[in-house]
Design a protein around this nucleic acid. Structure first.
Length: 496
RNA sequence: GGCCCCAUCGUCUAGUGGUUAGGACGUCGGCCUCUCACGCCGGUAACACCGGUUCGAACCCGGUUGGGGUCACCA
């Protein structure tokens, strides 16, 4: 059995989006599964649209996702000589011909065909030019493109797709496609094949949107006398309107960068993406990297396009709810030290980081993250909803303010009273604090909940959170007392 | 429009001739409780349609409808 060699060949005309990331992931998994190689190749033959920023963005995105490659990045433009040499060979062997039709002519004909409701296809004007005619046109210095000469015979081109089965297409349905531009630059269809041959690619794993390219490329492989690789066409990822997702029409919500910026855990995003069009045949949905490599197989890639169910402007779910729930799962269960690293990055960016969290406050830092992570969904939540644990400039949210504070004006005196009792305790721990709080409630003749939830609001600004007495310990006596004494501010602000 | 691909809950999906059509997310209800975008329990909800084949079809075949992709001197 020959070595498995797969490739991910993005064109650097925008940032890495989740469709591309998913393709990269599938290729990566197959390479890792089989002990093969993943080649990264930047397809930059469209010089006008390719940018350095885009290349960096794609590389960063892959790196962030944890998808490493074994060779490359190669740049397609570095192999222009190969592409042209191949075009030459095709010309020599009679598999291609020079076409002198101008763009204007072709456009005109195309319009006419369109109007007549005919197939829009090159009519083969230059296909049968005699050597003399060609020489004459070249003598005049007329520009030309190189077209592939599709066999004009009955029958079909075919290949066996690993997910879709046998795919056939009649020669008659394929026009003589252009492989070299009039400016001498080779086109995608050719470059891609030439590069895949040179890189000895064994499996081409790509989206179903390439299917019509594939039949034409099979023709090129045959004309070039090269073995045809195994083709694996994955189903596409669509939006709710069932449109193919693209950076251009969907914007940041489909950019990998967006998920990094919104507190996604890289592998959680991979875990979500792999479930779009693939499943293990068991009911397992959460996979470690090793488990997924083990479980992955081409055979279980589905045929059906899937909908990326992001909800724009939904306050609760800023993207596909399942993606968020998978991210939350990892957030809740991953080793706390690893989470500590991820949160550290965000805290540093937010100005919330304290170097002591890596030193003598490390235990406190990690145990506090562990205490509050249970109801968070992204790593961003620690700096927002969890802010009160790490800084004093946290916000008191409106809902709990109304429900737990303003509704009970007496808290204005009760909470400072509680602060005094906390101050008077010999030891301040979960037990003693709870006893003190409940005793106060009993003496005042109010439900403990009123005191406790009032405290929660003042201390964390949040409606929900961990058990109140765990919070007290995490915050520490001094901060608790400070904040409880300052409850006055809450009433004044809202009255103003 | 031509060519190609596809069709199970709202979404992601399991299912390959006999299942109460399973799971996950969402949603709804209940429980827990000091709170909940925590946890636990439960409910809701799908085989596009029409013909065949068969003792028996979500599964096999044909058609219809529907959806998607692609039709560049982009990749």
């Amino acid at each position: 059995m020959t070595e498995v060699r797969v490739r991910f060949p993005p064109s650097p005309t925008g940032y890495l989006h989740i469709g591309g990331a998913r393709t990269a992931l599938m290729n990566w998994l197959y390479a890792r599964k089989t002990g093969g190689k993943l080649i990264l190749r930047i397809e930059d033959t469209d010089a006008e649209r390719s940018t350095r920023e885009s290349i960096d963005g794609i590389l960063d995105g892959l790196t962030w996702l944890g998808l490493d490659w074994d060779e490359g990045p190669y740049f397609q433009t570095d192999f222009a000589a190969d592409h042209l040499a191949a075009a030459d060979r095709l010309l020599q062997s009679g598999h291609a011909y020079k076409c002198f039709c101008t763009k204007e002519e072709l456009d005109r004909k195309r319009q006419a065909l369109l109007a007549a409701k005919q197939d829009i296809r090159y009519d083969g004007t230059c296909r049968e030019l005699t050597p003399e005619q060609i020489a004459a046109k070249e003598q005049q210095g007329l520009p030309f493109v190189v077209r592939f000469k599709v066999p004009r015979q009955s029958g079909t081109v075919a290949y066996d797709d690993r997910v879709l089965g046998r795919i056939e297409r009649r020669y008659d349905d394929i026009e003589d496609f252009v492989i070299v531009r009039s400016n001498g630059k080779p086109l995608y269809l050719l470059c891609n094949v030439v590069d895949d041959i040179r890189d000895r690619i064994s499996h081409v794993i790509r989206g179903q949107d390439h299917m019509s390219n594939t039949t034409r490329q099979v023709l090129l492989y045959e004309a070039l006398g090269a073995p045809v690789p195994v083709f694996v066409h994955m189903p596409l990822t669509l939006d709710q309107q069932k449109r193919k997702i693209s950076k251009r029409s969907h914007g940041e919500i489909v950019a990998v960068q967006f998920y990094r910026d919104h507190g996604f855990i890289p592998w959680a995003l991979c875990n979500f993406l792999i479930l779009l069009g693939w499943n293990p045949g068991t009911e397992q949905e959460i996979f470690s990297r090793e488990e997924l490599i083990e479980a992955f197989s081409l055979e279980r890639i589905g045929k059906v396009n899937s909908v990326f169910n992001y909800r724009k402007d939904d306050p609760k779910f800023f993207t596909d709810p399942k993606a968020i729930s998978i991210n939350a799962h990892y957030l809740h269960t991953m080793p706390i030290e690893e989470l500590g690293q991820l949160v550290k990055q965000d805290f540093q960016a937010q100005g919330l980081w304290d170097d002591a969290y890596d030193q003598d406050r490390r235990d406190w830092y990690l145990s506090t993250l562990d205490l509050i992570r249970g109801r968070f969904h992204t790593t961003k939540d620690f700096a927002t909803m969890g802010r009160a644990y790490f800084a004093d400039d946290y916000t008191i949210e409106q809902k709990p303010l109304k429900k737990n504070i303003l509704k009970h004006p007496d808290l204005r005196t009760w909470l400072p009273m509680l602060a005094q009792r906390f101050a008077a305790l010999d030891t301040f721990d979960q037990q003693s604090a709870e006893t003190a709080a409940r005793e106060l409630a009993a003496e005042l003749g109010v439900k403990p909940g009123i005191i406790i939830n009032g405290m929660r609001t003042v201390l964390t600004g949040q409606l929900a959170g961990p058990g109140m007495f765990d919070i007290l310990v995490a915050l520490g006596r001094d901060r608790v007392i400070d904040r409880l004494k300052n409850i006055d501010g809450l009433y004044t602000t809202s009255e103003a």
